[in-house]
């Protein structure tokens, strides 16, 4: 029932497709629910995947995802401008960092340290090589340092420019590029027979 309603609401996406994120959010802040639906449909998947890939579990990702949108809704009067996309991903990232701190999880294994290699788990014989590569990629992301992972995921999921991501992370553009480079290097090693 709830899912049907959600799908129905999300189906409205496209009615205001030509409006910018910021305009939609301004309308939502003025009481326009449909504007929020449109905005939600735009970032629903990318925000969720960002949180899912950078979280330790799907449950945690669900919680963070819900909390991120709750903050967006609550903070509608405090959004003063700039890029909505950068703002919403910054909220998600801050929640992610808080979550790490709460759990006191160290997710920054030394890349070359064999003891911190993630357990790839059993690979069923019947799954295809391609599926195997995808699973290994997901696990490979978990093996990256937090900084490298968030740099890679923000580049892939947020659609922000390198300058915007660097500004969000509070680092220089070259530092960001370096983190992405290291992340890709690590993934290349893990997926040597896939790419």
């Amino acid at each position: 029932m709830a899912r049907c309603r959600a799908v129905q609401l999300i189906g409205l996406y496209g009615q205001m497709g030509e409006l910018t994120d910021e305009e939609l959010f301004r309308r939502f802040a003025g009481g326009d629910f449909e504007a929020f639906q449109d905005l939600y449909a735009r970032y629903r998947k990318s925000l969720y995947l960002y949180l899912l890939r950078s979280s330790s579990s799907a449950t945690e990702a669900d919680d963070l995802y819900q909390e991120a949108w709750a903050r967006v809704i609550q903070s509608k009067g405090r959004f003063t401008g700039g890029s909505f996309k950068a703002w919403v991903f910054r909220i998600a990232r801050n929640l992610q960092i808080d979550s790490f701190r709460r759990q006191r999880i160290t997710l920054i294994p030394e890349p070359d340290e064999p003891g911190h290699q993630p357990d790839p788990g059993p690979t069923p014989d019947d799954i295809s090589h391609y599926d195997d590569c995808r699973e290994r990629l997901k696990l490979g992301l978990q093996s990256l340092s937090q900084e490298q992972r968030e740099a890679f995921l923000l580049k892939e999921e947020s659609g922000l420019t390198l300058e915007q991501i660097a500004g969000m992370l509070g680092v220089g553009r070259e530092t960001l590029k370096s983190r992405i480079r290291y992340a890709l290097k690590r993934l290349r090693q893990l997926l040597e027979d896939c790419v």
Partner: peptide
């Protein structure tokens, strides 16, 4: 790797999550 990553983008938030957020 980027292409491969994009093929992994299949997960979506659960319908109950959508419903809760939209209701809020």
């Amino acid at each position: 790797i980027s292409d491969l990553y994009r093929t992994t983008r299949k997960e979506e938030p659960a319908g109950r999550l959508d419903a809760m957020i939209l209701a809020r």
